[in-house]
Design a protein around this nucleic acid. Structure first.
Length: 371
RNA sequence: CCAGGGGUGGCAGAGCGGUCAAUUGCACGAGACUGUAAAUCUCGCGGGGCAACCCUACGCAGGUUCGAAUCCUGCCCCCUGGA
């Protein structure tokens, strides 16, 4: 199997693999664009569902799209908004429901009580209003307690919705008179749980419709946090070689390595940013420049660093001696611990920069393994 | 010297006759977090067997009581007013 090295998006070249952090509400908390660029981040994932309620997609559209709004020079990728809504519904049924029409929900993230419907068409419209570089079809991901029948429904719906998304996408391109070079990539998501037949069916039908890329959807990790690599690999085998594959929500650094090995190109995950705020940093166990990432057990390359421990209060060493980020190059463990201790936002910022740098460094190294 | 208030686990601070090894917060320790409604959540936190139990503990020393961190007596120390 040949690994796709890069694609062109407009005038930009997107090299693979790539990791995009989740800037759900149009910000990576506590960081600004320069922080992100310095940490090696090339693109951000945004969530139309959150953006619809704040600041409102109309505003962003009027101000020139999400990248202009944020003054973000990198790439912008929007999710469909479906996953977020569905997970909220699975947490609290009164939140809404999924029908063939789309996802119905009653409360916005502001808490206002009004019925909304996120249809595949609406999702595409909003994403195109946001002017993202890559957009994603609305898909139906079953809850964790889903039965076989739920998975069948989800696959049927995902295929149907993908068709509607593609149609709406074409319609919007015409309506907006988007030049060929400026059109966003449209990705569809393969559902089907751990059932190979369902995954194969879903992939086959999506490929028939035709997309610029495909996602590995659903719950990628089990309760213990282990990825279902076998399914991941199988999904790749059912998709065209020349299209990028997106491992949605993946994952820990070692998960990215393992998914890369079976053919994935794009990753996004909240882990490095959220965990940085929650005081868990990632650190290399060995000099990453001197190991063969693909021949080493991926998990063994990383260790956790919990910065708020008392034992670091006099520790002058950097968090990670192999890291070239702003935190590790300038500040001690002792100082970071102090910043967390007093609850200053600089702790968040430095910790987030660091975790993102671990991810971007990992990506850099994986790219060297692409031939 | 007089009057009043108080001394509780690393700290702050509840409890005021049994159900108290002692509420709670902080600190400390161990976890969780996967297409982000998380500056969040969970667990542990006197010692030992590490389960049912045992030991040492609420300033110190006695006493009352079946039973006290809680009541009484004396002592030591602290705080606030007044001389």
């Amino acid at each position: 199997m040949k690994y796709l090295k890069q694609i062109k998006i407009g005038k930009k070249i997107l090299r693979f693999p790539v990791y995009f952090p989740d800037a759900t509400r149009a910000v990576i908390r506590s960081l600004d664009n320069r922080d992100l660029l310095e940490a090696g981040i090339e693109g951000l994932i945004l969530n139309p569902y959150h953006l619809m309620s704040l600041p409102g997609t109309k505003i962003i559209k009027k101000l020139g799209g999400i990248k202009a709004y944020m003054n973000w020079p990198g790439l912008a990728i929007t999710d469909s908004g479906g996953w977020q809504l569905l997970s909220l519904i699975y947490k609290d049924k009164s939140f809404g429901q999924v029908t063939d029409k789309g996802v119905i929900f009653h409360k916005g993230s502001l808490g206002e009580n009004k019925k909304h419907v996120l249809t595949p068409e609406r999702s595409i419209q909003v994403q195109m209003d946001l002017k993202a570089d890559i957009i994603i079809c609305l898909d139906d991901c079953p809850g964790k307690k889903a039965t076989r029948k739920d998975y069948e429904t989800s696959v049927r719906r995902t295929i149907d919705w993908a068709g509607r998304c593609k149609a709406e996408y074409e319609k919007q391109l015409k309506k907006r008179k988007t030049p060929t070079g400026a059109r966003p990539l449209l990705l569809a998501v393969v559902q089907g749980g751990s059932d190979k037949n369902l995954r194969a069916e879903c992939a086959r039908e999506l490929v028939k419709i035709g997309f610029d890329g495909y996602g590995w959807g659903g719950w990628t990790a089990d309760k213990k946090g282990h990825l279902n690599i076998e399914i991941a690999k199988f999904i790749v085998s059912q998709l065209p070689e020349d299209k990028p594959k997106f491992a949605l929500g993946v994952g820990y650094p070692w998960d990215i390595i393992d998914s890369f090995k079976v053919g994935y190109h794009i990753f996004d995950c909240v882990i490095p940013t959220r965990e940085a705020r929650h005081k868990r940093l990632y650190a290399w166990t060995k000099n990453p420049n001197k190991v063969n990432l693909l021949k080493t057990d991926a998990r063994s390359l990383f260790q956790f660093f919990y910065p708020n421990k008392e034992r670091y209060s006099r520790d002058q060493r950097p968090v990670d001696r192999f890291c070239d980020c702003r935190l590790c190059q300038n500040y001690s463990r002792a100082y970071l611990r102090h910043l967390f201790k007093i609850g200053d936002s600089l702790a968040w910022r430095l910790a987030t920069i660091h975790n993102l740098r671990v991810y971007s460094k990992l990506i850099e190294l994986l790219r060297k393994n692409v031939s």
